[in-house]
């Protein structure tokens, strides 16, 4: 069986992606009935350029994490199914969307934020 992996872009232009790894679950408030559409997940800030420090604010939690280079880079693939003439046989192609060389890892316990407004 043959799987074709196609890369549309050149070597330099291949867009780089990043994994945000959280230890936990991001949940919606009960009033939104589980739909994540058009909702702001949080804010990811790169605080200091010299130290690979990232803060990620979700709800009233603030997470502090760091950038970690992956040992094995990952590809982000997009599965494309082409319908040939014969309907029974589907041709599957994987298109490279991006490459992942590093991830931002938030492994510490989140800090609760106390809002100063009231």
């Amino acid at each position: 069986m043959e799987i074709r992996v196609k890369c549309g872009c050149g070597e330099d232009e291949c867009s780089e992606w990043t994994i945000v790894e959280l230890q936990g679950v991001v949940e919606t408030q009960s009033s939104f009935q589980g739909s994540v559409q058009n909702l702001e997940i949080g804010r990811l800030c790169h605080s200091d350029s010299s130290q690979e420090n990232y803060t990620f604010t979700v709800g009233y939690h603030e997470l502090v994490g760091s950038k970690v280079t992956l040992k094995k880079p990952l590809l982000v693939l997009k599965k494309i199914q082409k319908c040939t003439d014969d309907s029974s046989v589907k041709e599957t192609e994987l298109e490279v969307v991006g490459i992942i060389r590093s991830k931002i890892l938030f492994k510490t316990r989140p800090k609760p934020l106390i809002s100063g407004t009231n």
Partner: peptide, 11 residues
């Protein structure tokens, strides 16, 4: 509550 639609649950 609405200002924070998503909440983070730490595992």
């Amino acid at each position: 509550r609405d200002s924070r639609p998503l909440l983070f649950k730490f595992n």
